[in-house]
Amino acid sequence: MTVSVGARRSLPSGIEYAIDATGLRKTYRSRKGRQVAVAGLDLKVPNGGVHGFLGPNGSGKTTTIRMLLGLITADSGTMRVFDQELPAALPSVIGRIGAIVEQPKFFPSFSGRKNLALLAQGIGVPKARVGAVLDEVGLGDRGRDKFRTYSLGMKQRLAIAGTLLKDPDLLIFDEPTNGLDPAGIHEIRATMRGLADRGKTVLVSSHILTEVQQVADTVSIIGRGRLLAEGQVADILAASGGESVLVGIEDVHRAGTVLTEAGYRVAPLPDRMLQVSRPSAGLHPAEITRLLAGYQLYVHELTPVRANLESVFLELTAEEHLGAHPTDRTRA
């Protein structure tokens, strides 16, 4: 199999980065010993536009965001935001950053307006700005209701309003559409796009790829705390080899070996499925069935797939699901 484990780089050089982190590492102590949450991660987020920060659950996205925001301390590595070294320069740069980490976190017994008013008072923003940002996210009428009575979508919008209090240049949204209904997802997506169109930089972490593909200009894909790929969405899709075929077969290991030896790129998927592609040449599903049948391997499912961020993501993070070490994959 030929999945590239090293980071694919397709971000143009000479670009200005809102976030430029190198070699970030964070380990936690737990009962099972030391757990590596982020293992030498490099993250570059270009100035302006929406940058998708993708990875399976537990891949280190939230930990990375928390390190950037000074909520947790990195064990090693360097972080720069708007060319300022963090965490030392965080107090001076925080005014340019708005962030929602995981779920919106406010005082449940206070109204949305009261919650924002406290934040505004704390950072010395005029009270009038509270009404303006509430109107901006469509919560002007519900501002006096208690936060606990809000729907998840409203809570998310309130959190966005909170970030807008500072009128930041960089917005960090961590899994902003978790638990939202389709209308809510659409609304958040539109908000992010709108902010990027106004010249802001939006970093959105997510494991819901379709949503990111629709809104992101660039992405970073991480797995097990390391960068797997980064670049413009279009470039990453092109580099992934375009089309692929999902092959359902009983003996996935033998089929994988046969296909790999025949020059196909193979990524194992759950439920005895393989994702098969051939970047260097055309991909014909009939050839795959014929090849496998020649080895007494019979396909029970064959689905052509157009390349999208999800297929790239699954391909790159396959080992996250299967629990196999990246170096083991070539022997599969």
């Binding site: 925001l69 980490v101 976190k105």
Partner: peptide, 8 residues
């Protein structure tokens, strides 16, 4: 956590 993202 929210508060600390405003005043670190």
């Amino acid at each position: 956590a929210n508060w600390l993202t405003f005043i670190p």
